[in-house]
Design a protein around this nucleic acid. Structure first.
Lengths: 107, 107
DNA sequence: CTAATATGCAACCTGGAGGTTGCTTAAGAT
DNA sequence: ATCTTAAGCAACCTCCAGGTTGCATATTAG
């Protein structure tokens, strides 16, 4: 549990940027995209986008496959499920705290 | 939707740090804590913890109430629900993409 | 073969994140 | 009244995230 927590912060951090959220939103549509494709429509440089993609890749949110002269990036859902579990945990803790408070007041 | 997306990245970013994840884990237990209480058990300075708390507060994950000479921090669940919605959206997009791929292969 | 496209690599810049120390002020405790 | 504990404020430091430009390399198109 503590070990798992150490692996969640980087995933959250990877999503803590508007540009990267936009990339994830595009890639979770299913069709793998090259760097150039992902750069079109953004005001940033190709290298900036590349760096963002590497951050997402390090967090495991995305992976790349070299296809000829282009490298295609594809979405990877596992890490997102991981942090969803964490949110579930927090939510549950909170709900239990609220119930305890309620039953205490009712005494 | 685009407006809402602009407000999610800061929440993800606020959770993108081990120290802050630990603070959230403590506070979601229900009982509000003072800065000194939250500092005990951490290897960091009180000021460092304070800064982290302010980050969480700016993201809306937490709020503080001044009680006498101490300021108590309490968990706030709404922003977390917000990013959970985002994860649901991404997940759904991905699942739909998988179904489309499957039905295409089956043709 | 040559031109164009897609990417990689490296240097460089700037700002802010994360952390510390030192000092001040407010509020309880004795 | 005094001591102690809680917190705020500000200056300062270091390091890395995010972005750019410039150049080199691989692959596809004509």
């Amino acid at each position: 549990m503590a070990a798992k927590r150490q692996t969640r912060a980087p995933v959250f951090a990877a999503l803590g940027d508007e540009t990267r959220l936009a990339l994830v939103a595009k890639l979770c549509g299913g069709r793998p995209c090259s760097i150039s494709q992902l750069t079109r429509g953004s005001k940033l440089t190709r290298q900036a986008i590349t760096k963002h993609l590497r951050v997402l890749e390090s967090a495991g949110v995305v992976h790349s496959i070299r296809m000829g002269r282009e490298s295609r990036f594809e979405f990877d859902p596992q890490p997102l499920e991981g942090i969803r579990k964490y949110l579930d945990f927090v939510s549950e803790q909170w709900d239990q705290a609220l119930s305890r408070l309620t039953s205490f007041v009712e005494d």
